[in-house]
Amino acid sequence: MTEPPVSRVSRPIDHPDPRVSVVVPTIPANSHDAVVEHLREQTVDAYEVIVVDDATLDICEARNEGIRAARGSIVALTDDDCRPPRDWLSRVERAFDRDPGLVCLEGAVHGGRTYDGERRYVGCNLAFDREGAVAVGGFRSAFAGWRDDTEFGWRMERDAPGHCAYHDDVRMLHPEPPRATLDRNLEARLREEYPRRYEAVLVPDTLPGRVNDWLWRKGFWNLVDAIRYDLPNAVRSDR
């Protein structure tokens, strides 16, 4: 993890000896007030929240700076447009307590984004051993904006001293659709660098799955989501 430029890092929630450090990467154009307020309602005590609010850093640099600033042995990631349930961190801690060999934990996502544990390591609900993340080099800016979290998770699987797991009860609310869109060049690079994992995780093995994947890569589902979410907003604005 190379040293980035000095950025704006704050701790809206602090603790002298945190077990978990929550890292929220954001930029000044986006509000992070709501996610911090939800984090204030967590049912655990020994945690801190680190907000990296700097438009000069890409998302990987921002996450890496948060990891460097973290004082907890566990780092939990979420995004500025998410709403963590009150028991989110308690379930994260419980997962690591029950499984001493766990180095990376992915959880479920629902709302505008849904995820149920296909080894894609969605960054809005991801927790990991801090030392393990540093050992594998953190997040790679080469994938910033597309598959950066997946690529990180696959390196944790391959290189970190432990194992990765998915827990369905570690849940995150992502109210709006994701802001990221398909980057074909980065998708091709991920496939080239991780051919076996790519085939096992991202290439469907059924005909309906392959049709669905083809539609996604052609942008069909992005159009469906745009209609699904923009139409209700338009109706509300006319009232």
Rank of each mutant, 00 (worst) to 15 (best):
A135T: 00
R158T: 15
S141E: 12
E157C: 06
F152T: 04
V134M: 14
R158Q: 15
A160W: 02
R155M: 12
W154A: 02
V136K: 05
A133P: 11
H163N: 05
P161G: 09
W146T: 05
F143S: 03
F143I: 04
G138S: 09
D149G: 11
D159C: 06
V136L: 10
G162H: 03
D159K: 01
R140D: 15
G138M: 11
A142T: 14
D148F: 05
V136T: 13
A160E: 01
E157W: 08
A144Q: 09
H163V: 03
W154G: 01
V134E: 14
P161N: 12
F139W: 14
D159V: 02
R140I: 06
A144P: 12
A142D: 15
R155E: 09
G162I: 00
G145W: 09
R155S: 06
G138I: 08
T150Q: 10
A133H: 06
D148E: 15
T150I: 10
F152L: 14
G145Q: 09
F139I: 04
F139M: 07
A160K: 04
F139Y: 15
M156W: 02
R140L: 15
A133T: 04
D159L: 15
F139S: 03
A160D: 03
F152C: 12
G153E: 03
R158S: 14
D159M: 09
D148S: 11
A133C: 12
